[in-house]
Design a protein around this nucleic acid. Structure first.
Lengths: 134, 134
DNA sequence: TTCCTAATTGATATAAAATCTCAATAGCTA
DNA sequence: TAGCTATTGAGATTTTATATCAATTAGGAA
């Protein structure tokens, strides 16, 4: 297995994710670091975000039609994105929340919509996977 | 209001969406049209898909981390994407489907995961909207 | 402490998805 | 049929992210 090295840049990315008040995207993380460390490269920020996600220390929050956001890994919870400014925050669902509810309020957000994105393996690709296994 | 014109290209895009067996993305729609009409432009395909979505004739199916797919508008239903080949199909949920179920089977898909993407308006943007209204 | 080597970095090119620009074309209405 | 303007085609641009590759550096070995 590949040796993992601790670098200054990786530490800076980790600090930027954990010290952010909301859940920043890669560009926002890059901008917050580059202020004090102008020589850091955007590619390094992306690479380190990917490593931290792989290591399970950071969670990638995907949104529809926009850049990924990042969050320090902290148990299972939902996120909500503002349709206007695109910021992402934690969403605390009420105990009895039901997906048919028209509106909920969490941290002052006004819920506009939600989409459920399902991912699976289609019949064709199940066959391909089965064939590869033997 | 702007005058809407019926063009040959718009008809071709409509035909490509309605005659597809699964739910193609813009590139796949472009490729299916360009075979017989080599002069059509990719930009025209994207523009007409957007018009058809605006007119409510076509539904945009967003997926996480991939291009949008398109579906002739036909009532409310879910979609599922294959994690391997990225094809998108209709998902017929069982009557008593519960999001905590580990696995369901619909059209032979093996459900791997789902994500709920919430969208709303954050407190700051609610204020901005309120200010703009008066 | 110094050396060695592979992991990592920075700079830049590239990719993928989608939109924008603008001159040329072609629907629609009169 | 003429004329206005919506729409098109071609290519540039934008956005998000990854790939390439020479230069640098972390960290174990000597």
């Amino acid at each position: 297995m590949k040796e993992k090295r601790q670098t200054i840049q990786k530490g800076l990315v980790w600090d930027a994710v954990t010290h952010a008040t909301n859940h920043p995207n890669a560009e926002q993380i890059y901008e917050s670091i580059v202020e004090k460390h102008p020589s850091i490269s955007r590619a390094t920020v992306y690479r380190n975000l990917n490593s931290l996600v792989e290591e399970g220390k950071v969670t990638r929050v995907r949104v529809l039609g926009g850049p990924d956001h990042f969050d320090r890994t902290l148990g299972n919870h939902y996120h909500i994105q503002c349709v206007d400014c695109k910021r992402v925050d934690d969403l605390e669902l009420y105990k009895n929340f039901n997906l048919s509810d028209q509106m909920i309020d969490s941290k002052g957000y006004l819920l506009e919509s939600y989409e459920i994105v399902f991912n699976g393996i289609c019949p064709e690709c199940q066959k391909i996977r089965a064939a590869k296994k033997q």
